[in-house]
Structures are given as structure tokens and as C-alpha cells.
Design a protein around this nucleic acid. Structure first.
Lengths: 342, 342
DNA sequence: TTGCATACTCGAAACGTTTCGTATAGTGCA
DNA sequence: TGCACTATACGAAACGTTTCGAGTATGCAA
């Protein structure tokens, strides 16, 4: 319980068990043939003195640590928190630890995080990128020297495996649902430039319009940046102008919250006055007012797939295949969308 | 960008700068007097080959790593996600990394996490405990050998500093608010046994009743365990019985969600039919139906205080003072509470 | 009895740092 | 000029592992 107590080393284990250090190591790791009774003695010694291997020494000798880095935009976004939880469980199960970091879309911070990951000699990385362009990819690639999987988005020029939602379909599903209800003026809160997740969802939005011969009005494409506050603000601005939309499609969960807030603030009723559809479900959807119609993504499954791929790549020491694995979104119709009044 | 590329070592830096390894180390860490031009040469070399120190080697030599462990019940609970974010920022600023782990109240898992923390020779620990009793404290204490701060709760028999909410006051505030509105039959979703956070909030609940000479009915103390699903279920059960309460006090944010769900499921209107008050605010409170009355805790400030204390303790190498620092809760009245109809 | 494979076990080196005692060059003073 | 001192640079040891070549019994076949 005291501070700074020196922990037992494998040397202590070896001495207590009456064997050589190398034998103790072999017994503990089952990395070489060791007789049954030596194993027993070593294990007894380990328990008796509470030996825990020194991760640093191990990583020094072996060239990599049993640490996996998870870099995401913001841990307080429930979507990413779920990812963190899944990754953590999988890591623990596989005998790894994970270090989770939020970039907050700050590139300096991202650099700093990557540097610490390198300092810890992490065995692998899962990255949910905040930009998809080649320039950023090049910067990223320079700093990464370990197996990596990209989650939720991809980055041009990076050879890593990708696990993500079929975002075009997600955008199309949401938009077609609204069109199907009779909406013709559908606003959308856009993502951030240079991030393909938003661009793909927009592609779906455009495709749905095209398929139904509905022209897209430029003024209805409002700024969102995947940010609740920004979506909130641009929604307010949009609604204060003449000829407002009959529906708003929020490209992400946080933006949906911003939109719903704004709509309610100006006194409009959802869905009576205006319909709202988001991407990504909420755990607390049924106590929202109103429960929102969303296009849901199988977050946990995607995260599980990402960590599985990463662990496999680490273990096989194989080069990444560069595969892009797409997961299918699913439309969940609730009370925030209905036929337009006008 | 390739896999398994050998990273540059301080030896490479030294060679390139034309100095001894020890000099390079001193220059990089400013740990001994080094002439200006040597520093310049070393720094140039560091940049040129992109040298990043080997954390493992460092921790081996120095006896501890620049890693801080954060152990909490569940990262997908927004309350804890906020803690994680604050701790992460503070760590990064101080040149540390942090490793976040969710115990899910699983003691085996907790043990496993603690063991990994030990393996990594973390410099310090912030723990949000899932039990407060002495037995658990003893188990915990045995496994902890580094500076530690307890957040949100405390554990009997552990000498560490504690940062937490004034939970008795929180419980009292919520209850008195309801009593002040005229409620006399106030149900409460209890916490878990052996966890003092819940017990303290209950103490506040009892104190408020006593202060107003209102008897507490045993049947209104329903099981909650800080769990959304359990609170949901016991609320359903409670509401199916005769003479239901006119208000429900949920001892935590997750339980409030469970209660609200249940109440809505049986077709009751909040607050017309029944009032609901929770502890801990929601970011999306104003799009909930109805916006809930809550007793809010200054989560971020508390987390900041905890990590500040921990870093100070690590740096000073002082023994923990064992101080308990209390933060004051604040009642936020919204639409989920009103005068009772009966 | 000898030789040889088998099954373990051992000792030493190496991983990349930091630290500490020692060496060297430069400086001021007598 | 010589001496003591300061400022800086160096070399080697140590931290706790894993790995690998070498060593030692044991059992079995010849």
C-alpha cells in the first residue's frame, strides 16, 4: 500500500523457485519447454511475491509494447465512447492495454498524441480520422510506424485497412425517407470539408434527389461541421429566412441535437412544422421529444471488426491488405418525421 | 510508413551530433549543464532523424512510466466520459499519457486492470470506485503501489485523497425541492449496497423527510443499482401497485433515464401525473421530454481537481494527505417537476 | 559399457535509457 | 608559470526482460 515500493522482479521469482532467470521466464511465458514441476514452482513463487512483469523492460527487449492506441475525435460523443468500450474489452481479452485519445480536431494535438504513441512503442493503432485528404494522410503516414486500422472514415494515400459505414447509402436512406413522405425542400447540415464521411453522406443526399428528379437548392446546404453548436446556429439562421425547408437532414448525431434544439427554440413543432432525420442512433431516443427518426450505424460491430483486424494484423505481422469494409446502415422511423404540411 | 521500422535511438542522435550518449541525454532532458552549441547540435540531430525516446527504456531505468491510469465504471456514461476528457487534457499538458479503463463493476476485471496498470508501472491512478466497503478497500490497497486519488466516491480504509460531490446535500436538495412542491409520497431509486455515493444521497433524502416531519415509506425505496435497466424495471413494478408515488427521485443520471422511460411506457405524463428529479445534468436536457429537473454536479471541475492533486502528489513525492474535498451540487429546476395533482 | 538423442536448464548478451563518478579543458588568481 | 577551481563532456553501470547458444543429465539402443 506504501508509495514507491519496489516491485518484485523475475530475478526474485527465479531465486525463490530455485531456477535460473531464463527458466523462470520460459515457465511464465510458456515460450520454451519446461518441466511440470518447475512450472509449478515458478508459478507458486509468482503468486507468493505477487510478481507482475515490467512492461517497460519487456517492450524494450521485444521492440514493442502490449499497448494499442485509439485515436478519436472526442470521447464525450456517445458514438465514440461506444467504440472505446468495445476496443477496451477486446484488448483486455487479448492481453493488451489501450490508450484512448481525443484529438478534438486539433492537428497539433494529434501530432502530440502520435508522438506519445510512438514513445510508448504501441503495437498498433486504431484511428478515427478527422480529415481524409492526401496532405493530411501524408503527414499521418510519416508519423505512423505500426499496424493501423482506420475506422469510420478513410484517408487518401494511406495503405491501411478501413472499416466504415456505407455512408452513401446512409445519406440516401435518410433522404429518400423524407422524399417518400412528400418533402421537396430538404435542408442538410453538411460535414467538414476534407472529410469523406460527410461527403459520402452528401452524395447519398444528392443521389436521392436525382433519382426523384428533385432539384437541390444550394441555400439548403447549411454549415454543420459535425458540430452541435455550429449546426444549431446555422439552423437558426436558415429558419429565419423566407421559404424555409419542410425537413432537415442532420448528417450526424451531434448535429441532430443541434438542429432539434434550434427548431424547438424558434417555436416550431417536430414533426408537425418540420421533419428532422439524423444519422446515428441515440440510446435515449425514446425519451427525446420527439423520438427521432434516424439512420442507425452498427457502431459496436464496426469497432469490434476494427480491433479484430488490428489484432490479426499485429499477430500475423502481415502487411495491411488495404481492404475497405463497409457496414450497412438501417433506417429507424420514429416520430420526428412525417408528411409535410405545405 | 512501413511496418516494424526500427526507430532511431539516442545513440543515433549522439553520433549525428558528435557527442557522447550521456551528453545527448543531458541535452534533451536539460538534466545537467550542457553548452548552448551542444544543445543546438543535439536538437538539430533529434529533428533530423525524428528521434522519439523509448518510453519503455525510460521507465525501466527510472522506475516509473509517464502514464496515468484512470479506472472508472463505464466510459459510455456521459458523466465518466467527461471525466476522461478532462483527465486526458490535463495529462497531455503535463507530458503524461493516460490509460482509461471501465470496470463494468466486475471485480475480476478490476483486478486485471490493476495488474496491467502495475505492469505498465503507471505513475499514478485516478479511481472512481464501484464499492466503498473496507473489504474491497483492502483488496484494492494491496494492489496499488502508486499515488492515487479517489474520485466521486471514497473507500473505507484507503489513505488516498478524495474528490467528490457533497452527496448528502445533493440528495437533500432534490428531495426538498419535491417536498416544497407539495409531494409527500416520493419514491427513490436506490444505489448499490456498499457504495457510499448512493448511501449519502439517501441520507439527504431521509434528512429532508425528517426535517419536514414526513414519514418515509419503505415500499417507495426501490432498487436501482445505478443502472438504467434496473431502475426502469423497478419503476414499472412500483407504478403497477396501488397508491403510487407522486414523484420519483432518481439517484443518478442513468437511473433517471430508466425512470423516465418507464413512466412514459405506462402512459403517465411528466410532470402532470408524476414528477421526476435526477442527480447529474444531461447535455441534451432541453430536447428531452420533458426537460428534467436535476441536481447538477460540477463534473469537469471535480475531475480537474482530481488530476491536479494527483500530478502534485506525483511530483512532490509526498504521501497523500487523505483529504476529502467536497464539491457543491446545484439544483436546476426544469419541467419534469411540478405540484402534485393528488 | 559406450554413444547419442532427448529433454530440460543455464548463463550471458542485448534492448535504450539515465545517472554518477571521473576526466578534461578553460579560467582566474597568486 | 603554476595551481585550484569551474564548467562541461564522457564512459560505464544498471534497470528487468527475452533469447539463444551451450551445457547437463537421463534414457535407450548398440
Amino acid at each position: 500500500m506504501g508509495e514507491g515500493v519496489e516491485l518484485a522482479t523475475i530475478k526474485d521469482v527465479a531465486r525463490l523457485a530455485g531456477v535460473a532467470i531464463s527458466t523462470a521466464s520460459a515457465a511464465i511465458n510458456r515460450s520454451a519447454p519446461v518441466s511440470e514441476d518447475v512450472i509449478a514452482k515458478v508459478e507458486a513463487a509468482v503468486r507468493e511475491i505477487g510478481y507482475v512483469p515490467h512492461g517497460g523492460a519487456r517492450s524494450l527487449r521485444m521492440g514493442q509494447s502490449r499497448l494499442i492506441g485509439l485515436i478519436l475525435p472526442d470521447i464525450t460523443n456517445p458514438h465514440f465512447a461506444k467504440v472505446a468500450k468495445v476496443v477496451e474489452s477486446a484488448c483486455l481479452e487479448a492481453g493488451y492495454m489501450d490508450a484512448v485519445y481525443s484529438t478534438s480536431e486539433d492537428y497539433d494535438r494529434e501530432r502530440q498524441i502520435l508522438e506519445m504513441m510512438r514513445m510508448q512503442r504501441v503495437a498498433g493503432l486504431i484511428i478515427i480520422p478527422t480529415r481524409s485528404d492526401a496532405e493530411h494522410g501524408a503527414r499521418l503516414g510519416e508519423q505512423i510506424h505500426v499496424p493501423t486500422v482506420l475506422l469510420d472514415s478513410f484517408v487518401t494515400g494511406l495503405p491501411y485497412d478501413v472499416v466504415k459505414l456505407d455512408n452513401v447509402t446512409a445519406g440516401r436512406l435518410a433522404t429518400e425517407h423524407l422524399i417518400g413522405l412528400g418533402h421537396r425542400r430538404i435542408a442538410v447540415t453538411t460535414g467538414r470539408p476534407n472529410i469523406v464521411t460527410g461527403e459520402d453522406r452528401m452524395r447519398g443526399y444528392f443521389a436521392a434527389h436525382a433519382a426523384h428528379d428533385i432539384p437541390v437548392e444550394q441555400r439548403l446546404l447549411i454549415e454543420g461541421r459535425f458540430d452541435q453548436a455550429i449546426a444549431h446556429e446555422s439552423t437558426l439562421r436558415l429558419l429565419s429566412q423566407p421559404d424555409p425547408p419542410t425537413a432537415i437532414f442532420a448528417l450526424s448525431n451531434m448535429m441532430a441535437l443541434g438542429v432539434l434544439n434550434a427548431v424547438q427554440e424558434v417555436g416550431l413543432k417536430v414533426p408537425a412544422d418540420i421533419s428532422v432525420v439524423g444519422i446515428d442512433d441515440f440510446d435515449f431516443a425514446n425519451i427525446m421529444s420527439p423520438p427521432p427518426t434516424v439512420v442507425a450505424a452498427p457502431v459496436e460491430q464496426m469497432a469490434q471488426r476494427a480491433i479484430d483486424k488490428l489484432l490479426a494484423e499485429i499477430r500475423s505481422k502481415a502487411a495491411p491488405s488495404g481492404d475497405v469494409e463497409l457496414f450497412e446502415p438501417r433506417l429507424i422511423v420514429r416520430a420526428s418525421s412525417s408528411r409535410p404540411v405545405r
